[in-house]
Design a binder for these strands. Structure first.
Lengths: 322, 322
DNA sequence: ATGAAAGCGCTAACAT
DNA sequence: ATGTTAGCGCTTTCAT
């Protein structure tokens, strides 16, 4: 039997007699044979590899997206490469110097990373499939939440409780990476305020960098204001955690002295009884991976963005103003 | 100029004239040339890839180890593959069916995964370097903390505050994966108790599965006891979070009604004012990656395990018994 | 349905 | 110090 037949049999191609295929499969199992991936990709030009690009590897949001995507890739037999781009320079380097990745991967999942149309198109031209989580990019499947609605719902929730001075801990910080999300949540927040006849008070908007410390510092700033807010919307649970930490440092009671509302439903949110706007992070990662695999397999895929649902989870850190 | 010279120049091999090398480098940059990794690994037999194996991708501990290792690998130009093995069956499959990974990677980092001597040796024979975090494996570099000391320090801390009935939320659960760490911490805990003339009360030992829910359930069980403990040592911060959640559900005050002590110094620990035994997780991941890279480069590496330091961080969830 | 053979783009051994 | 050449182990035409 020739190598070609074996190759065909193993890969499930047509034009192989069933009897031949089963014989090949049987022997392959017995011999523990498995094709050399490097040789396969050299000959076929496909790497069977997915690269996931995230801004920070250790944060809850990103590691959860990764977990969702990894499960799908592993199951589908794709190798799963992770790249962390700490800052926007690294990120642009990755997206611009595509000759460095085009031979390493068949597809890229961008998580909360903004790619220009040119970058997205250039990837496509080089035969690299693309899929995004948290942002959208030209001509590729994407999954994200309605961030405008997140902001609006936050404002509605807090203003609905009677709050009039509502602080905002935004993600805008030094790091301009993934600056899109905060912008959209801010826009929605403003809309939500308007529904209650309120308008955004720029002095109550503080950058928080999406981390615990950033949230704490932002909260400290807000509480030091002459007229501090009675409620605070943090654009992520981790920043909300920081806000809560700062409050406990000052002996303030969440939901009583100051209300705090987060976004994500981080697994620790319920420990802190944090009221939050839940999103389903792992399933977004999984969805992105599935879309990507479909694109790589040339299966028709909807380029309509998938809007992942959000839901308000009311716990104990929100209440009417004192 | 021949391809061989170019190859040598690009890879920094000796026997290339400086003038030649710089000319090659200049042209390569201009042409954005970069060697095809698949062809290189097919010809040279080296993949320039590292695989990190973790039991759960989304938990804080593992994603932090991953972040530490990824930074080192990326910097050293190694591709960074992540594999999650949800249960012991998958894990054994990975370690036993090595023919499936030997052509995909030059090295494996095992994070809190126990490999038998046979598995470790077999990997080495197949030319796959090995390095471990959290456990040790035969004949390869490893980094971990002194888990016996962790247990002992925990007992000392709580008994030293005057506690006599000390509960233990262990990691032993349904999942027998990484069963080594809980065992060692338990041993140390017993030793520590003995230093205070106490002995381990088996009714106060509950399995917690290393997650928040597991910790909460374990705490519920302990608090429902006829004589509940006045202090609880949780073998991870995440389980301690669960314990705190259960306490707050019952209106119990941490550090006053019941003391809680964790392990890790998870980034959220300070938000909850959790007293904990800190370990440096990212640096362990980085150290393991560095050792692995050294082994792959045939640099002499110490096989003496690196004992990563731990330190008690006293916050507010511990205090003398009521 | 199967086989033969030509590469894929490198690296490494050998020759110069 | 540089060039020549034989593969690495597959996939894929093309022929049968």
């Amino acid at each position: 039997m020739s190598v070609a037949t074996v190759s065909r049999a193993l890969r499930g191609l047509p034009n192989v007699a069933e009897s031949t295929r089963s014989r090949v499969l049987e022997v392959a199992t017995r011999l523990r044979y498995e094709p050399d991936p490097a040789a396969a990709r050299l000959a076929a030009g496909r790497t069977h590899t997915v690269i996931v690009v995230v801004p920070h590897l250790a944060s809850w949001y990103f590691s959860t997206v990764i977990a969702g995507a990894e499960a799908v890739c592993n199951e589908s037999g794709y190798e799963f490469l992770v790249v962390g781009v700490g800052n926007i320079a690294e990120c642009d380097r990755l997206l611009d110097e595509q000759y460095r990745i085009e031979r390493r991967t068949d597809g890229v999942v961008l998580v909360n990373i903004v790619a220009t149309d040119a970058q997205a198109q250039s990837l496509r031209e080089r035969g690299v499939a693309l899929s995004t989580v948290g942002t959208r990019a030209a001509g590729c499947p994407s999954v994200f939440i309605d961030d405008v609605e997140v902001g609006r719902l936050a404002a509605e929730t807090l203003a609905g409780l009677g709050h009039r001075r509502i602080g905002l801990i935004s993600g805008l910080g030094e790091d301009p990476l993934n600056f899109d999300v905060p912008k959209r949540r801010l826009a929605g927040f403003t809309i939500g305020l308007r529904e209650f006849g309120l308008s955004l008070d720029a002095t109550l908007v503080v950058g928080g960098n999406f981390g615990i410390d950033g949230g704490a510092e932002a909260m400290a700033h807000l509480l030091d204001l002459g007229e501090p807010p009675t409620a605070v919307f943090a654009m992520s649970d981790e920043m909300a955690f920081g806000a809560l930490m700062e409050m406990s440092r000052r002996g303030l009671r969440p939901g009583v002295d100051v209300s705090v509302l987060g976004v994500d439903d981080h697994e620790v949110a319920r420990v802190l009884s944090l009221t939050t706007i839940r999103q389903h992070v792992a399933s977004q990662g999984a969805a992105a991976a599935r879309s990507l695999i479909a694109v790589m397999a040339s299966t028709p895929v909807s380029l309509e963005p998938v809007i992942s649902p959000i839901e308000l989870v009311i716990r104990a850190t929100t209440g009417p103003p004192a």
